[in-house]
């Protein structure tokens, strides 16, 4: 299992976010004059991957099980019971069964991953996740050789999730990956943000993070993982197949039917921020492009 070398320094060991920004502002201010300081900061933010604030990340969410507004999850998700929590791993695995969250956390090595996060709605954040590679969890359960896909399912609890009382989507929320996507080292199960346990509104106690795909692929509050040889159904694809494909890789050249995906609004930039160009595979092209060699990304959107 995992237990590879990991960084022992955490986010709290580096320059505090605000001080970091202030220092940059001062430097940019010296270089470009006070009036241009903001612009210098915005330009640098794009390449330096500065995380969004904890507040932005935890107060601005899409988690329709708790309401369709961006602030609904932060307001409503406190009702979700995340402990005890068990995850059923079944299908084409050697050791199917119910795994308690504690047993999973014991077996996995938690590390920090600072990833870009690109929502299909054309906004983006940078998020310092804590978590483990999904490959490690799947290896623990023992993937059988004929498995080709991984299906995921979110908890569906009308008593604890006010949003599922209304059919905004066909509940429970389901997602899926091809096995090679799931086993890719960039694909993680996140259990924390900024070194703190992941808040309910972000998908506690465990959610998927696939940084080169649109955010809705990164399914939250997972209760079931099924290894299968069939492409699993996915919630947004079921809701609107014309707009949301199985792959949903971030791709600036393939528009959503209702808006362009060529650029994005960086959350936290304020009312007058310039849009940023969206990067192919959300900036992870070098790492993941090979997964899709020879595939037409326009038809397999």
């Amino acid at each position: 299992m995992a237990h590879r070398w990991t960084n022992t320094l955490t986010h709290s060991d580096i320059t505090p976010h605000r001080a970091f920004l202030n220092r940059r502002q001062v430097m940019a201010g010296l270089a470009a004059g006070v009036g241009l300081a903001g612009i210098g900061r915005a330009a640098q933010a794009a390449d330096a991957l500065e995380p969004n604030s904890y507040e932005d990340i935890t107060q601005y969410n899409n988690f329709y099980e708790f309401g369709t507004g961006k602030t609904d999850p932060a307001r409503n998700a406190h009702t979700l019971t995340t402990s005890p929590w068990k995850v059923t791993i079944d299908g084409m695995v050697d050791k199917p069964g119910d795994y308690s969250m504690e047993s999973i956390m014991e077996a996995m090595t938690i590390e920090e991953r600072i990833y870009r996060f690109r929502c299909v709605e054309a906004w983006s954040m940078v998020i310092p996740w804590n978590g483990f590679e999904l490959a490690d969890l799947l290896t623990m359960a023992g993937v059988q050789s004929d498995a080709k896909y991984v299906a995921f399912e979110t908890a569906n609890r009308p008593d604890e999730m006010p949003g599922v009382r209304f059919p905004a989507l066909d509940w429970p929320y389901v997602e899926g990956l091809r096995l090679d996507e799931a086993m890719h080292p960039l694909t993680i199960m996140a259990t924390g943000i900024f070194g703190k346990p992941i808040p309910n509104q972000n998908g506690a106690p465990m959610r998927l993070v696939v940084p080169w795909k649109y955010g809705f692929k990164s399914i939250k509050s997972i209760v079931r993982i099924t290894l299968t040889d069939q492409e699993p159904p996915t919630s947004w694809n079921k809701a609107n197949a014309r707009e949301y494909g199985f792959y949903s890789n971030v791709n600036p050249e393939v528009s959503h039917p209702r808006w362009s995906q060529a650029s994005e609004r960086a959350v936290g930039g304020g009312l007058f921020a310039r849009r940023q160009p969206t990067l192919m595979f959300n900036g992870y092209e070098k790492e993941v492009a090979a997964l899709y060699d020879g595939m037409d990304l326009k038809t397999n959107f």
């Binding site: 932005d56 107060q59 961006k70 906004w123 959350v267 304020g270 009312l271």
Partner: peptide, 15 residues
């Protein structure tokens, strides 16, 4: 509200 951040961190859409 949008300028001062009271409409959240992505104020363009809410406004």
């Amino acid at each position: 509200l949008a300028v001062t951040g009271s409409l959240g961190p992505d104020p363009v859409k809410p406004l």
